[in-house]
């Protein structure tokens, strides 16, 4: 599916954007706020929600040429993106078991995509 590979990559982009938003929410959740309402109303959380909203738009664009059966499989790349982002930004460790799992997810996605 060389023609559809572009839309598959758009789907991957939407998963990446969604992953970035999740990491932003995670960072926001670990901060202290003077009032409970500021846990929701702060620039980080609001931009995270906007990014997540944006990712759903990108998903719909991708689905124009990506099979529904492929969507949730590609979405599993979120685990990979979040692990990488968490490793880089939150300094979270990746153990061997997780590394193998992440590699399996990538392999599985490549198998269905090619």
């Amino acid at each position: 599916m060389p023609e559809n590979i572009v839309f598959l990559l758009i789907m991957v982009l939407s998963v990446f954007v969604s992953s970035v938003s999740q990491v932003m929410l995670k960072i926001a959740a670990s901060k202290d706020y003077s009032k409970r309402i500021y846990e929701y109303l702060n620039p980080l959380v609001i931009s995270a929600y906007l990014l997540f909203f944006g990712s759903t738009v990108v998903t719909v664009i991708a689905y124009r040429h990506v099979a529904l059966s492929l969507g949730p499989i590609v979405e599993a790349l979120g685990y990979v993106f979040i692990a990488i982002l968490s490793y880089m930004i939150l300094k979270e460790r990746i153990n061997t078991k997780k590394l193998v799992g992440l590699a399996l997810i990538i392999c599985g996605v490549v198998v269905v995509a090619i």
Partner: peptide, 21 residues
């Protein structure tokens, strides 16, 4: 079959990732 195999590999990967911690 390719899709089923790919999905099964992804599923196994997810289970490994979530139980790694």
């Amino acid at each position: 079959l390719k899709m089923i195999i790919g999905a099964a590999v992804v599923f196994a990967g997810i289970v490994l990732v979530v139980y790694a911690d």
